[in-house]
Amino acid sequence: KNALMQLNEIKPGLQYTLLSQTGPVHAPLFVMSVEVNGQVFEGSGPTKKKAKLHAAEKALR
Rank of each mutant, 00 (worst) to 15 (best):
K1N: 13
K1V: 12
N2D: 12
L4C: 10
L4P: 04
L4M: 13
M5R: 15
M5N: 14
M5E: 15
M5A: 14
Q6A: 15
N8A: 15
N8G: 10
N8E: 11
N8Q: 15
E9C: 10
E9Y: 10
E9A: 15
E9F: 09
I10S: 08
I10N: 05
K11M: 11
K11D: 15
P12Q: 08
P12L: 02
P12W: 04
P12M: 04
P12I: 04
G13M: 06
G13Y: 03
L14F: 03
Q15N: 13
Q15G: 08
Q15C: 10
Q15F: 07
Q15K: 12
Q15L: 07
Q15V: 14
Y16H: 01
Y16N: 02
Y16S: 02
T17G: 05
T17V: 09
L18D: 02
L18E: 11
L19H: 06
L19Q: 14
L19N: 06
L19K: 14
L19T: 14
L19P: 00
S20K: 09
S20T: 12
S20R: 13
S20N: 11
Q21C: 10
Q21G: 06
T22M: 08
T22G: 09
T22L: 08
G23V: 03
G23N: 03
G23P: 05
P24Q: 07
P24K: 08
P24Y: 05
P24W: 04
P24A: 08
V25A: 15
V25Y: 10
V25L: 11
V25N: 15
H26Y: 04
H26T: 12
A27G: 09
A27Y: 07
A27F: 04
A27Q: 12
A27H: 11
P28I: 02
P28Y: 02
P28D: 03
P28K: 12
L29P: 04
L29K: 14
L29V: 13
L29D: 10
L29Y: 11
L29N: 11
L29F: 10
F30M: 05
V31S: 12
V31N: 09
V31R: 14
V31W: 10
M32C: 10
M32I: 09
M32F: 13
M32N: 03
M32W: 04
S33K: 14
S33L: 06
S33I: 09
S33D: 03
V34G: 01
E35A: 04
E35F: 07
E35C: 14
E35I: 15
V36I: 12
V36S: 03
V36C: 05
N37K: 06
N37Y: 07
N37T: 04
N37Q: 08
Q39N: 05
Q39Y: 09
Q39P: 02
Q39C: 09
Q39S: 10
V40K: 14
V40F: 08
V40L: 11
F41D: 00
F41I: 08
F41V: 07
E42Y: 09
E42G: 03
E42L: 13
G43V: 01
G43W: 01
G43K: 00
G43P: 00
G43N: 02
S44P: 02
G45L: 01
G45C: 01
G45R: 01
G45M: 00
G45N: 01
G45V: 00
P46N: 12
P46W: 10
P46E: 11
P46Y: 14
P46H: 08
T47Y: 00
K48Q: 12
K48W: 06
K48D: 03
K48N: 02
K48R: 09
K48A: 09
K49P: 07
K49C: 11
K50R: 10
K50M: 14
A51M: 02
A51Q: 03
L53W: 13
L53S: 09
L53R: 04
H54I: 11
A55P: 03
A55L: 04
A55M: 01
A55N: 00
A56R: 03
A56W: 02
A56F: 03
A56P: 00
E57M: 06
E57R: 08
E57H: 08
E57T: 08
K58G: 09
K58N: 07
A59T: 03
A59Y: 04
A59G: 03
L60W: 08
L60Q: 00
L60A: 02
L60H: 00
R61Q: 14
